[in-house]
Design a protein around this nucleic acid. Structure first.
Lengths: 140, 140
DNA sequence: TTAGAGTAGATGCAAACGCATAAGTCACTA
DNA sequence: TAGTGACTTATGCGTTTGCATCTACTCTAA
């Protein structure tokens, strides 16, 4: 077992443990964690996002994301407009209600994240962000 | 946005990017990645594992894991025996076929992991393993 | 020894998922 | 400018998931 494999296994375990912990917290209201993730990704962009772009950031198959967007539009959290520059594509953006819901859930969730990572020193937080950043950049 | 939140977001992104990449690779054969994870977790234990213990390491709800185990037993990869010490529980272990399948998939997958993490220096691998280890230990 | 609380795993059911593929659009080339 | 292959999103369909709940067993203490 190489160091790389140990590191990956350790990362996966941390991900699983923390995800389960966050999921168990009572902050998600009307959304699932996956739905929140979609709203969160969109909240970071000021210009509308393409479905395929969003799909790169979300751990869902393309059809599953397509249908999740359906439901979120239906429920009034998202707008889906045709892309004027490319008539195959769509442009996704948060509605005001979607933005508000994202914020209402995001605030307590962000506090949970801070609390869960409070066992790390500031140096470790920097290192973690730098190393994982390097990992995702190298593959896309 | 605190450093902790940035670090967590970066970790999630690395997880998503690498998971998608691994999933796209043609090494999984007759198993899904989630099923492989169950076989892998069991391959690390010499003594049979309790369902609840296994559930801590796998990102699945208890009912979903229960049924996945059903299917893996049905397909001949797992043995499920009643626990003699606690008649509520079961003891899970790999069959020879299960162990062999895990190894056959694990070898090329381990190489993919090594390749994907080869952008990190040995020091970074050590740091990543140490930091993520600290994270999962603190929460269980 | 037994009542009550807690824990382990299974099951009914509706919702969500992934795979394969369709339908529409783009871009390049002959 | 018609043809071909790539790209983007949607849809059919069988499988898997999560939530709520159930059954069975254990543990504690009166």
């Amino acid at each position: 077992m190489t160091r790389a494999n140990e590191a990956w296994e350790s990362l996966m375990k941390a991900y699983a443990v923390l995800m389960k912990q966050f999921n168990a917290e009572d902050v998600w209201g009307e959304l699932t964690m996956r739905e929140y993730d979609v709203l969160y990704q969109l909240s970071k962009c000021d210009s509308p996002l393409r479905m395929s772009e969003l799909n790169r950031h979300v751990l869902l198959s393309q059809p599953a994301l397509s249908r999740m967007v359906d439901r979120l539009v239906e429920r009034g959290y998202l707008d889906r407009c045709p892309d004027p520059g490319d008539r195959r594509g769509v442009r996704l953006s948060l509605t005001p209600a979607g933005r508000e819901t994202q914020r209402a859930i995001g605030r307590p969730h962000a506090r949970s994240v801070t609390r869960a990572l409070s066992v790390l020193t500031p140096e470790e937080l920097e290192q973690l962000a730098a190393i994982t950043g390097k990992l995702s950049q190298s593959e896309e």
